[in-house]
C-alpha cells in the first residue's frame, strides 16, 4: 500500500510588492503518494516555482503546512531543514545542475558522501544507476564534457541515489530538444515508479505530462484543476484540452 510522502495543507505564501500583498501561493492543498509522479503546470507567474521552493524547504510559507515523510517543515529550524534536504529530498534543476569540477560518477556519489553513506555497495549502485540512464561510458566525464541531456540524466541519478522520500524537478527539460526532453522525463518517471518515490516535476511544457500520474494546474497562486484521469492527461499533453 502506498504511503503519503508529501502533504500540503492550506499553503499560503505572500509577498509584499509596492505596498500591496500578493499571494504567490494561495491556499493550496494536495498530497503525493510514494511511487506517484505528479506534474505541476501553469503559466508564468502562476506560483509553480514558489510552490516548489517551499516543498524543497528553501522558502518558508506564510501559513499552512508541508509534511514530508510525516515531518512538518514549519516546526524545523534551518539546520534541520538542511538535514531534511540532504536526506529526504532529491533535486534536479533547470540548469547549472551539476558540480562542474566533479565527474558524472562523483556528482552522483556526492549525495552519498553528504549523507555519510558512501561505501562499496553504494558505489556499485551508483554506477548501475548511471548505466541504467545510458551513461556507463560517461562515468569519468566532467559536466562540461557532456550534453545537456546527459547532464540532466546525471542529475536524475543524483536525485535518486540516496533514496529520498520526495524527488523534485524544476523544469528539467527547459534546455533540451524535444527528443531528449521526452527521453529524460520518461526515464525519470520509470525510476520514480520503480523506486517507489514521490516525484514532482514543474514544467511549462504540457507534452511532458504524458508520463505523469497526475497533473496539478496552478493559476494566480491557486490550484485551479487536478487531472487524474489518464485519458484526460494524455489529451492535455497532446494539446487537445487546455
Amino acid at each position: 500500500m502506498s504511503t503519503i510522502a508529501l502533504e500540503v495543507r492550506d499553503l499560503v505564501k505572500s509577498f509584499s510588492l509596492d505596498g500591496a500583498t500578493i499571494n504567490a501561493v494561495d491556499h493550496v492543498s494536495f498530497q503525493v503518494k510514494s511511487g506517484e509522479f505528479v506534474a505541476l503546470v501553469g503559466p508564468s507567474g502562476s506560483g509553480k516555482t514558489t510552490m516548489l521552493s517551499i516543498l524543497a524547504a528553501l522558502l518558508t510559507p506564510t501559513s499552512g503546512q508541508v509534511l514530508i515523510d510525516g515531518q512538518d517543515l514549519a516546526q524545523m529550524n534551518e539546520k534541520q531543514r538542511v538535514k531534511l534536504r540532504r536526506e529526504k529530498i532529491g533535486f534536479t534543476f533547470q540548469s547549472n545542475n551539476l558540480i562542474p569540477f566533479l565527474s558524472a560518477r562523483e556528482n552522483v556519489e556526492f549525495m552519498l558522501r553528504l549523507n555519510g553513506r558512501l561505501d562499496h555497495a553504494s558505489r556499485i549502485r551508483s554506477d548501475e544507476l548511471l548505466a541504467r540512464l545510458g551513461l556507463s561510458d560517461r562515468l569519468h566525464n566532467l559536466p562540461a564534457q557532456m550534453s545537456g541531456g546527459q547532464q540532466q540524466r546525471v542529475a536524475i541519478a543524483r536525485a535518486l541515489i540516496h533514496n529520498p522520500a520526495v524527488v523534485l524537478a524544476d523544469e528539467p527539460t527547459a534546455s533540451l530538444d524535444t527528443e531528449r526532453a521526452y527521453q529524460v522525463v520518461e526515464t525519470f518517471a520509470n525510476l520514480i515508479h520503480e523506486n517507489e518515490r514521490a516525484g514532482i516535476i514543474v514544467t511549462h511544457d504540457l507534452r511532458m505530462c504524458q508520463y505523469v500520474d497526475r497533473v496539478l494546474q496552478m493559476q494566480d497562486g491557486k490550484l485551479v484543476r487536478i487531472y487524474e484521469d489518464k485519458k484526460e492527461i494524455i489529451e492535455l499533453a497532446r494539446g487537445t484540452i487546455h
Binding site: 524543497a56 528553501l58 539546520k79 538542511v82 538535514k83 534536504r85 540532504r86 536526506e87 529530498i89 533535486f91 534543476f93 540548469s95 547549472n96 545542475n97 551539476l98 558540480i99 562542474p100 556526492f110 549525495m111 553528504l114 549523507n115 543524483r158
Partner: peptide, 13 residues
C-alpha cells in the same frame, strides 16, 4: 553563485 546554490539546495551546510 549558482553552483554554491545547488550545493546548499541538495543539503550541503
Amino acid at each position: 553563485v549558482p553552483q554554491i546554490g545547488v550545493l546548499k539546495a541538495i543539503g550541503s551546510s
